[in-house]
Design a protein around this nucleic acid. Structure first.
Length: 420
DNA sequence: TCTGGGGTCCTAGGACCC
DNA sequence: TCTGGGGTCCTAGGACCC
């Protein structure tokens, strides 16, 4: 048996924990750069603010409905997420952290106990200790736990916890109530194709022959269909694997065209990517860099490109990654374009011993000591205290717009919440 | 004027091997 | 008229997720 715990309107709920005056009011949270709406309180959903809607297109409705607007504050959300998981683990220790606001739980080791009561206690405690409301779905497969969670959220009588029923007739009734596009793993494209085949609900998909799903779509879709029938195809992944890629990229607050400005943006992404890599105790064997213009500005000339190189030996040393990223960036840069976005991607990520390069001159142990020292100083004195000169020292034109950010209440001494 | 960022997995096809 | 059989690796593109 699996449970899925999903935080309700997570980012909006985080904002409310520290500003209770927002309770009962519509709240939205914007993406990086204050570009799009990425989270909405129930009240904001009710007045028709869509997920992913560009901010500038809903300004009028925001004013009319007195919607509270926040820039995204990932420092706060990540810390709140950690607190929610820790609280859950007090009750149910076998967890898979699926996303910033979702956790799968393995209930099998607790069999014999009153699982529903346990889930209700967990839910109430998370609310009490962190302030975050969550919903819980319980079912024999992950796909059904997702579906059950959705029902827990939408059905007032469930009080936030829903157990997928055991009886066949009852199961069919529930599956029939879920539209195919609301099934986990079925996106827009596949929904359209399934509709064309007359498959409109979760029940319809569960009744399709597995071989037909396999042939018409792929093995992932087949697993989804089987899981809807109660056949588990995905296990709990409680041992986090090493990531495969690490990307740092941003749209610019304003477009830039000069190489010095573009290079600063690339430099800051390379620096942050290398830091993140070291934080995960890993190294990368491949680096790529991309830049592109604003695709929405059809009146302007468009250009985009990417380039890459091997990192041999695999490394997490900032100066190495930075200088190679800038070399690639310089090759990509063309004058006469207005750039909107740049990014750096690290891949072939490994941990542990690395294959040395035959002709490499660098002293890697010295590099590691230097980076370790730099990271420790930055941890103690504040991020960016020590940094390469290639990054900028002043707020720049390309810096991210973030006009509505709340304080980092839980991670900065000078931003602690105050009672008055 | 303003349009996010970060991930995973699968498949098909081409290049190459013996 | 008929033109082998069995593999691996890489990449691009397409799907999905939050």
């Amino acid at each position: 048996m699996y449970a899925l715990v999903d935080c309700n309107n997570f980012y909006a709920s985080c904002e409310r924990v520290f500003q209770p005056a927002l309770e009962g009011r519509p709240v939205i949270v914007l993406s990086n750069n204050d570009g799009c709406v990425v989270a909405r309180s129930q009240e904001a959903k009710d007045v028709g603010i869509a997920m992913g809607e560009p901010f500038f297109k809903c300004r009028e409705r925001i004013r009319r409905h007195r919607i509270a607007v926040r820039s995204s504050n990932y420092t706060l959300y990540e810390d709140m997420s950690r607190r929610v998981v820790q609280t859950i683990m007090r009750f149910i220790p076998d967890v898979e952290i699926y996303s910033i606001d979702e956790v799968f739980l393995d209930l099998d080791p607790l069999v014999g106990r009153d699982l529903e009561a346990l889930c209700r206690t967990t839910r109430a405690t998370v609310r009490q200790w962190t302030g975050i409301p969550v919903s819980v779905g319980i079912a024999p497969t992950k796909t059904l736990a997702k579906l059950a969670n959705r029902i827990a959220k939408k059905t007032p009588g469930t009080d936030g916890v829903y157990w997928f029923p055991a009886g066949e007739a009852e199961q069919a009734r529930v599956l029939k109530s879920v539209a195919i596009e609301d099934v986990w793993g079925i996106g827009r494209r596949w929904s359209a194709r399934l509709h064309a085949l007359g498959v409109r609900t979760a029940l319809d998909l569960s009744r399709m022959p597995a071989s037909e799903v396999r042939r018409g779509f792929n093995i992932v879709a087949m697993h989804t269909a089987l899981e809807l029938r109660g056949v588990p195809c995905q296990e709990l992944e409680d041992d986090p694997q090493l990531r495969q890629t690490l990307v740092r990229s941003r749209s610019f607050g304003r477009m830039v065209s000069s190489w010095p400005e573009l290079s600063e943006a690339i430099a800051s992404h390379a620096i942050r990517a290398a830091e993140k890599l070291r934080h995960e105790n890993a190294r990368a064997g491949h680096l790529s860099v991309f830049v592109h213009t604003n695709r929405f500005r059809e009146d302007l000339p468009q250009y985009g490109g990417s380039g890459s190189c091997e990192l041999l030996p695999a490394t997490s040393t900032t100066p190495v990654i930075l200088s190679k990223a800038l070399e690639i960036g310089q090759r990509l840069w063309r004058s006469g374009f207005q750039y909107k976005k740049a990014g750096v991607m690290l891949s072939e990520i490994t941990r542990g011993p690395v294959q040395a390069g035959l002709f490499e001159q660098r002293d890697e142990q010295r590099d590691d000591r230097l980076m370790g020292t730099m990271d420790r100083i930055n941890r103690k004195m504040g991020s960016g205290t020590l940094r390469p000169a290639a990054s900028s020292f002043k707020p720049q034109r390309w810096a991210m717009a973030q006009d509505h950010r709340s304080p980092r209440y839980t991670t900065r001494w000078d931003e602690l919440p105050r009672t008055r």
